[in-house]
């Protein structure tokens, strides 16, 4: 009898050993979070260790082995230049994830900075930032990016610039709204009355309160950016051939689609899986971090 009675107590103790594990076990959306983390983690490992994992060089052509179907030697077959599709897809994962990560990171840094400054100082600063957000939002993103790349020239740096210039507005809106709410917190007002500098109030007392929504949106934004960048390079505006990139690979393979289905299929799958993985991760994280009511 006593054994039965003590069992629940023991599980309780085991559960609270790690506060993070405890919350993860209870949290909503943990399924999404697990699957998303798994997919994104797997792609990230492929991307980071692409040099080790890819069996062939992604650029060197081998015209004696064009259009070989998937086999042991070439897991995903070879393309019109005899290059190993698996190796190219793995290298492409590295490039695409890097663009998705850094491209959105710059957007977030820029957007959150502008939003926090606008929300905190208000008045004329807020007015100018607000109109700037409206103007940038009014121009369709993809058109603006194409125009910017056309004007600046097609390079990685210019791609990042174009992504940052067009993508910061959502972060700015989110951060601005949160800051306006956080500014009215009693302890923020108290710290102003105590003569703290604006920088300290913003960085130590406001930013920790407002950063969660932009961070969550960041993951969701990465999904969009993976799709956007692959679409851009499909249109020839991203990294140029022979650089391995999913969108560019599909574009190059298009004329041979009917005779060599494996050439466009695997980069396509890469895009889909990366999108789903990041989507699940973002969604699960949002559910997990959202405060439970009641």
């Amino acid at each position: 009898m006593s054994q039965i009675a003590t069992t629940p107590v023991q599980t309780q103790v085991a559960r609270i050993r790690s506060p993070f594990a405890f919350r993860l076990r209870r949290g909503k959306g943990r399924g999404k979070l697990y699957v998303g983390t798994l997919i994104v983690g797997a792609i990230a490992v492929l991307a980071i260790f692409s040099r080790v994992i890819a069996p062939f060089d992604p650029i060197t052509q081998d015209l004696t082995s064009q259009f070989l179907p998937p086999s042991h030697a070439h897991l995903f077959g070879t393309d019109q230049f005899g290059r190993d599709v698996f190796s190219r897809a793995v290298y492409a994962a590295s490039l695409d994830l890097q663009i998705a990560f850094l491209g959105t990171l710059f957007c977030m840094l820029l957007g959150v900075s502008i939003g926090v400054v606008a929300g905190y100082f208000g008045g004329i600063v807020d007015l100018i930032a607000g109109r700037l957000i409206d103007v940038v939002t009014a121009i369709p993103g993809i058109v603006a990016i194409i125009a910017l790349i056309a004007a600046l020239g097609s390079s990685m740096l210019n791609l990042y610039i174009a992504l940052a210039v067009t993508g910061w507005t959502a972060y700015a809106r989110l951060a601005r709204g949160e800051v306006i709410a956080a500014k009215n917190l009693q302890y923020v007002q108290a710290s102003r009355a105590l003569g703290y500098t604006n920088r300290r109030i913003v960085l130590r007392h406001i930013l920790p309160n407002v950063i969660t929504p932009p961070l969550l949106f960041w993951i969701t934004d990465m999904v969009g950016t993976v799709l956007l960048v692959t679409a851009l390079s499909y249109l020839g505006l991203g990294p140029q051939p022979p650089t391995p990139e999913w969108g560019a690979m599909i574009s190059e393979a298009q004329p041979f689609m009917l005779m060599a289905w494996w050439v466009p299929l695997f980069p396509g799958l890469g895009i889909v899986i990366a999108g789903i993985g990041l989507g699940l991760l973002g969604d699960g994280l949002a559910d997990f971090l959202r405060p439970e009511v009641g």
Binding site: Q186, Y187, A190, S191, A193, L194, G195, Y196, T197, H205
Partner: peptide, 23 residues
């Protein structure tokens, strides 16, 4: 004005529970 706030003139607010940063 920041040179006066807290240093010369200080202020305490109504609700002490929310006047401290919880984190």
């Amino acid at each position: 004005l920041t040179r006066f706030r807290g240093r010369e003139i200080s202020m305490i607010l109504q609700d002490p529970m929310s006047a401290l940063n919880p984190v």
